[in-house]
């Protein structure tokens, strides 16, 4: 099976090189989707051997992820691994996440920060995630312990059918909706995360989280 990693990146020139380097031994190819960065993110990623697809303007994490999925399909990927470019995810967790998909047991694997190894996660992050899980459950009818995780593995069925419309951070909830809609089987596997001042600053703010939640609810009714 051809395994391709998709990394959406926006102004990540300081971190993307290490992420791409550490990915390479676990996957057959890496696609970095440069989401309209104003720094040297695409050049740095290309230098490390990643296939770079560049958005002409910043469209959001959801749009960048979907572009990566399109690119992976065109490169004949059977399995897609998504993870963040800021270095918070540990690429050495990939084999563990790949196993259920490669054994054809499940369609989607979600890396969860809230089970298994004790991760040092700030309280506010835990609270955001809890709210995100509740909104995700209300709007999709499916409960997962880490609905906002960016570290996921999609098996062949999901690679072919995944169709995301939302551009911003709300795409994480849309992925759970896709899982519910297509009745894909899922499993949650604990992952390790490293939070730094940098990764925390890159995440969603409180107001951003509220806007995302409203968009999710509105979308549910207007779709």
């Amino acid at each position: 099976m051809k395994i391709i990693a998709v990394i959406p990146a926006y102004n990540e020139s300081g971190h993307v090189a290490e992420v791409v380097r550490r990915m390479q031994k676990h996957v057959d190819g890496t696609i970095v989707v440069d989401d309209g960065s104003t720094d040297t993110t695409p050049e740095v990623a290309r230098r490390e051997g990643a296939f770079v697809v560049s958005h002409a303007m910043n469209c959001g994490a959801g749009a960048a992820t979907m572009t990566g999925v399109h690119a992976a399909r065109l490169l004949r990927a059977d399995v897609i691994v998504t993870l963040d470019a800021d270095g918070q995810h540990n690429p050495d967790d990939i084999p563990q996440l790949l196993t259920p998909v490669l054994k054809s047991k499940v369609d989607v694997v979600i890396g969860t920060r809230f089970r298994g190894p004790k991760n040092t996660i700030p309280f506010i992050r835990r609270a955001f995630n809890c709210i995100g899980n509740i909104f995700t459950y209300i709007t999709t009818g499916k409960y997962v312990s880490d609905s906002q995780s960016g570290f996921k593995v999609f098996g062949p069925k999901a690679v072919q059918a995944l169709d995301l419309h939302l551009s911003g951070f709300e795409f994480c909830t849309e992925i759970i909706r896709e899982i519910a809609k297509h009745r894909w089987s899922i499993v949650e596997i604990p992952i390790r995360v490293t939070y730094s001042e940098y990764t925390l600053a890159k995440g969603q703010s409180f107001s951003g989280g509220v806007i995302t939640a409203c968009k999710i609810l509105l979308r549910t009714f207007l779709r």
């Binding site: 296939f51 697809v53 958005h55 469209c59 959001g60 749009a63 572009t67 690119a71 065109l74 490169l75």
Partner: peptide, 30 residues
Amino acid sequence: VFHILVRIEQMQKRMTDLVRHEALREAGLI
């Protein structure tokens, strides 16, 4: 307001599709 939001989302989606298509074309994939 809902109607306007839907229209804005549709326009945003079209713009994203355009940016995506151009990005994939420039990357030589299409």
